[in-house]
Structures are given as structure tokens and as C-alpha cells.
Design a protein around this nucleic acid. Structure first.
Lengths: 120, 120
DNA sequence: ATTGGCGGTAACGTTTATGTAACTAAAAGC
DNA sequence: GCTTTTAGTTACATAAACGTTACCGCCAAT
């Protein structure tokens, strides 16, 4: 079994969280799973994110090399983002998180109902 | 292939992040993989977390039903935390994150070196 | 020359997460 | 009833993340 190191600067989990953690990065990455998507489409598909934050997160992901930015100088300018090779490696984690999220959410909702019932 | 929903309140990834996201929760959960651990030991094993935050995060994990708190009224009081059944379900994600973290960190470090070299 | 779509940036404000220091509770042994 | 150990809590402060609003730069079509 893998070691779960403690020392903050060497723990692999800490690294993972620093690259794909935060409120929006996993969602953005999830949107790029099926190929390149342009900026405007991302903004529409993730309605609750502000454009500023979207730009910011995309820039961080690009700096870390998880995504690639393609800028086409066209009639209306077009900018697309797609997963890089490094970015592809996060797919299993995204899948595991998706898998877990739906199951766990039900279980926890259930758990909280019981807990609420219990302390009455 | 799984759907990666967008709507913030239904996206499974968002749920996952809300339960095990944040700076410390994945680390704490990682420490509980091999069975119950007492409060003091957690504090020692995760040196950079303050006791207040540790308490706080443990309480949240307990409220969500991911961990179980056992309090023994003994000579020096003893409190142990262990993964619940729900908590066990996050193990695959933790493993995937660990797996990813070490590989990706190297790749990204490498990538950033090249990027730095490029813009000189 | 002006308008409209796209992909931003700048200045500023708010919220949420995390941190520090000092204090408390409970029980066993003396 | 005082001390020691463990596991907290309270009050306060700081930092990191996120959000809002308004504006900029480019180009093609009118």
C-alpha cells in the first residue's frame, strides 16, 4: 500500500490538491475531457463562474502545463483550451471523484437525516 | 463515459470537493487509512496543522459521517478517530490522488523548467 | 467612423479558510 | 483539593480565494 506522507511539502496528495484543487479547477478540467473547448463556451457551460475567475484559473492551469491554449486570429477572435499530455493524467482522479461524488452525496444526506432524527 | 455535469449544485465533483476538499481533509483521511488514530497522534503526524483547525476539520468530517469519533473516559482522556463505512468509499480517490500527485509533480516541475528556459 | 462580438484586464470588495495565543474540562493519582 | 495529561474551546487576526463592475483591444462588416 502506498505511503501517505505527512510532511506538507512532499505529500503527493498536497501536490495534487495544489494543481487541481480549488472550487473551479476540477470542473473546468471535467469540461475539457472531450476535446478542445473555447473560452466563451466554457463560460456558458459553467454558469456560476465569473469570467475573471475563469480566465485566472485557465491561466494557472496553463502555467502548470495541464492545459494548452490555442489562440486563432480570426474574424471574431477564437481561443480554445484543451488538455495537455500532463492534463490527461488527471482523468482517473476526475473519474474517481465523479464516481464517488454521486454515491457519497446520497449516503451523507441519508446519514445527516438520521443524525438529525437522533438528537431530538 | 460519465457525465461531468455543470450545474454547481448537482455536479458530483463539486460534492466530492465539498466533503473532502480543502487544505487538510485529504491529508487527515490519508492518516486514518490504517485504522483508528488518536487526536494527539494526528497532531504530531501532521505537524503543520494547528490544533484548532485539526479539531474543526475532524468535527466536519464527523458531521458528514466520514469518520467516527470514539471518546474513552480514561486516566488521561483518549479520543480516537476512524474511517466510517462512508469514509472507506473515499479510499479509491485518495489512492488515485496519491498516485497522480507524485508523477504529476515531477512532470510539472519539468514543464516549468522548460517554460522558463523558453522565454529567455 | 462606428458598431458588435470575443476574449480578456484592472481596481476594488467580500467571503471563506486558516492561523495564534491563551484559556477550559475531565479524570486519575497523590 | 491539587497536579498532570489529553483534548479540546474562545477570541481575535491574517491570508487566500473568489466575486462584481467597468473598461480595453482587436477585427470585420456596415
Amino acid at each position: 500500500m502506498k505511503k501517505f506522507e505527512t510532511h506538507t511539502s512532499t505529500c503527493p496528495i498536497v501536490h495534487t490538491m495544489s494543481y487541481i484543487g480549488g472550487k473551479w479547477k476540477p470542473i473546468i478540467l471535467g469540461r475539457l475531457l472531450n476535446g478542445a473547448v473555447r473560452f466563451g463556451k466554457l463560460a456558458v457551460q459553467i454558469p456560476d463562474i465569473s469570467r475573471k475567475i475563469l480566465t485566472e484559473q485557465l491561466k494557472e492551469l496553463e502555467e502548470d502545463g495541464l492545459i494548452i491554449r490555442h489562440s486563432y486570429s480570426e474574424k471574431p477572435p477564437r481561443v480554445e483550451y484543451e488538455l495537455s499530455e500532463i492534463g490527461q493524467t488527471v482523468i482517473p482522479v476526475l473519474m474517481a471523484m465523479t464516481e464517488l461524488g454521486s454515491k457519497m452525496h446520497e449516503a451523507i444526506t441519508q446519514h445527516k437525516r438520521s443524525a438529525a432524527r437522533a438528537h431530538r
